[in-house]
Design a protein around this nucleic acid. Structure first.
Lengths: 208, 208
DNA sequence: TAAAATATCCCCCAAAAAGGGGGATGGCTT
DNA sequence: AAGCCATCCCCCTTTTTGGGGGATATTTTA
C-alpha cells in the first residue's frame, strides 16, 4: 500500500514551521498539505485539508493548542494529533493527554523522533518524547515505603473511590467494625482525622 | 565521559536472552555484566553485578518480574529497570508502572528501540514502546461528550477526592445548598443515587 | 428573541454515615 | 515475649447524605 500520510502543521514560529515542513516533505510517503501559524487561521481549511496527522503547537496567538484540540477532534475525528511544546510541566502534559492527543513531543525532539512519531500515530500508536514518558511514569509510581498495610491500602483505596464503610465491609466480607478499626489506624498513621484529609495525604505521598 | 553502562538481563527464554546479550554487547559503551534465566537465580549476584540498567522479563519461573521489582529496587535503588513483556494488557502495564520501572517495552520492539531505551533510562529518562504509550495515553483521555457541566465536573471531582459538600461549598465560595443542587443534577444525569455510584460511573465513562 | 440550560440559593425531613473513645482476640513474625 | 496485623465488639454525638419541594438570575443556544 503506497498510502501517503497527509500532514498539517499548526505552529506560530515561522522558522520552526518551515523547518518541520522541510523535514517532513522530504519523507517519501509524507505530504505536508498545509501549514498555518495559528489554529484560528487553520480552522476554516482543516476540513478541506483532510489531514491524517496534525502537528499542533501549544503556545499560539489566539486559540491555543490545548483549547483547539477539542474543536479539531470534533471537526476531524479520525485525524491523529501530535502536541508540540517547549514546556514539559506535569500539569500541561496531563491536560494535553486528557484532551486526547495521540502523541506528545517536546520541541527538542530529534528529526528522527518526529518522523517516527508521525508514522506511529498515523497507525493508531502512541508517541511520547522521553521527557513526557518520564513525567507520566513518575505519576504512576507508588511510594514503596508506605506505612499502610495491604489491607489498609485496600480500604483507603475503596474510600477514595467513594465507597462507604458498610459497602467496603460487605465487599471484603468483613464486619463494619473491622473496617472502622482499619480506618482508625489509617488516620493515626497518616495523622489525619477525616476521609478527605486521608485521601489527600495518601495521594500526595502516593500511598494509593 | 566514557562511562560504560552496566547491564544485567533477566529473561527466561534462552534464545531471547542470548539475542539481547549479543545485541547489547555489540554497543561500544554497553557492558552486559551478567544474564540470568530468572530472578531467583539473579538475586544473590545482583549486588555484586552493580548494574546501571536491568532488562527484566515479566513472565518467569519462580518469582516473576513484577514481584521481583520491589526487591530489586530495594537492593539496587539506583538501578534503572526496563520491563520486557509480550503482554500489553492495560492491567499489567499499570501494575508495572506503579512498581516504578523506568521503561516498559513490549518484546516486538526493534533493536534500535531497545538500545535507545537503555540509553534513555540510564540517564533518568523514560522509555515506552508505542503499544504501551497508546494504552497509557488512552487511560488519560477524558470523554469529551460528558453530559456534566464544568461546575458539575468540578464538584464531582472534589467529591471523588473525598471532600464533603460543606467543604466543597467553602472552597468554591458558594452555599452548601448550591452544591447540593449540583449534586442532585449530577445524580440525575448519571442515573445514580449515591456518591459511590456517581464516582464509579463517572470514572468508567471518563467524565472525571 | 424565546426557550433551554446553568448556577445560585432556600426550606422540609429521616436515614445513614462518620468519627472519637474504650476495649478484645487469634495469628503471625521477629 | 513483644509487636504488628486483621478481625470484631460496645459506648456516644455530630456530620453528612439523599429525597422531596421550590425560587431567581445569568448565560447559552436554538
Amino acid at each position: 500500500m503506497n498510502h501517503t500520510i497527509r500532514i498539517v502543521l499548526i505552529e506560530d514560529d515561522d522558522i520552526l514551521r518551515m523547518g518541520y515542513e522541510s523535514l517532513l516533505t522530504d519523507i517519501e510517503d509524507f505530504t505536508v498539505v498545509n501549514s498555518y501559524a495559528s489554529y484560528d487561521l487553520a480552522r476554516k481549511h482543516l476540513d478541506a485539508d483532510q489531514p491524517d496527522v496534525i502537528l499542533l503547537d501549544i503556545q499560539m496567538p489566539g486559540t491555543n493548542g490545548l483549547q483547539a484540540l477539542p474543536f479539531i477532534k470534533k471537526t476531524l475525528p479520525n485525524a491523529h494529533i501530535i502536541i508540540l511544546t517547549v514546556f514539559d510541566s506535569p500539569e500541561l502534559v496531563f491536560e494535553a493527554l486528557t484532551m486526547g492527543a495521540g502523541g506528545y513531543l517536546t520541541k527538542n525532539s530529534s528529526a528522527a523522533k518526529i518522523i517516527d512519531a508521525v508514522r506511529e500515530v498515523s497507525t493508531g500508536g502512541g508517541a511520547m518524547s522521553t521527557n513526557v514518558a518520564r513525567i507520566v511514569m513518575h505519576s504512576f509510581q507508588k511510594n514503596l515505603n508506605s506505612p499502610l498495610t495491604k489491607r489498609e491500602t485496600e480500604i483507603l483505596d475503596r474510600i477514595a473511590n467513594g465507597q462507604t464503610k458498610p459497602q467496603i465491609a460487605n465487599d471484603l466480607f468483613i464486619d463494619q467494625e473491622t473496617v472502622r478499626s482499619h480506618v482508625k489506624n489509617i488516620y493515626i498513621k497518616l495523622d489525619v482525622n477525616s476521609k478527605a484529609e486521608a485521601i489527600k495525604t495518601a495521594k500526595e505521598k502516593r500511598f494509593i
